[in-house]
Design a protein around this nucleic acid. Sequence first.
DNA 1: GCGAGTTTGGTGACGCGTCAACAAAGCTCT
DNA 2: AGAGCTTTGTTGACGCGTCACCAAACTCGC
Lengths: 152, 152
Amino acid sequence: MAEPRWLDEREARLWRAYLDLNRELNGALERHLERESGLSNADYALLVPLSAAPDGLVRARDLGVAVGWERSRLSHQVARMEKRGLVVREVCPEDARGSMVRLTPAGRAAIEAAAPGHVDTVRRYLFDVLTDEEVSVLDKAFTKLLARIAAD
Amino acid sequence: MAEPRWLDEREARLWRAYLDLNRELNGALERHLERESGLSNADYALLVPLSAAPDGLVRARDLGVAVGWERSRLSHQVARMEKRGLVVREVCPEDARGSMVRLTPAGRAAIEAAAPGHVDTVRRYLFDVLTDEEVSVLDKAFTKLLARIAAD
DNA sequence: GCGAGTTTGGTGACGCGTCAACAAAGCTCT
DNA sequence: AGAGCTTTGTTGACGCGTCACCAAACTCGC
């Protein structure tokens, strides 16, 4: 590996700010969500697509695609949530390999109780701070960056 | 909790992109680092300030401040790295409560082998994709967002 | 010097996330 | 139909991260 082009001062500062922001924003959201609803970010991420689906019923495979998780991670998370009564697993009628995940009434109650506060937190920490212009630039930049990673 | 202002389409897209980018960028960096050097992001984060310190020796408290971690997290990570021979813990001469963390020769070799490739990965995925203008806007935006969280 | 409160670090339990391995079921090609 | 490959989901081990709790040592006021 030849000597690389090291980050200049501006780049290093941005990189550091990005890492810090990740940590702090994630932490702040996680704390608020946990304190106000007893849910984790991971719980919330799964509850959103589940609550939007007809009868709160989604095939595990599709749920994984919806949240961008791999199978193992989804399986672990569903197991934890099933133990707490937020979802139940059911057999998949049209494919015996498959597994359906169904939102329980308790799960629906949890997401409906949590959503307003969560959105409010995101707004307070993120969108209330950014200008319209910044939102546009960030949107474009993030999309480009995602495309770059997807192109690996 | 009154009905909040829900995210509009543009905001929701940005929020989603932010979550996806976090996941994907972190994952990509973690995979590259692991594959090329056998180090995790957490290893790397600690090795950077350690290798910059005189004699690779830093007090645990200061190391925690440097990387922005809490004591417990630092303690766990140092324990894992000590088991692999990257660092050693020593007593702190000027404060018997304290604990010094020292980079071992193996630890120094590991960070020096890993750094060029890691910087290169960050550059390829991040700075090669962004324009100068975008870097400026992101820098300013991230700094504002961090200040907002710190002000809670 | 002594006692109260603070600072520093470590530990155990548990949730989160990845990897490797596995099993069962579907699919494809002959 | 059957061999081989793919898809789907689960599991166990392990690293990462937080929380609650603890213990030792420092500090400050008396």
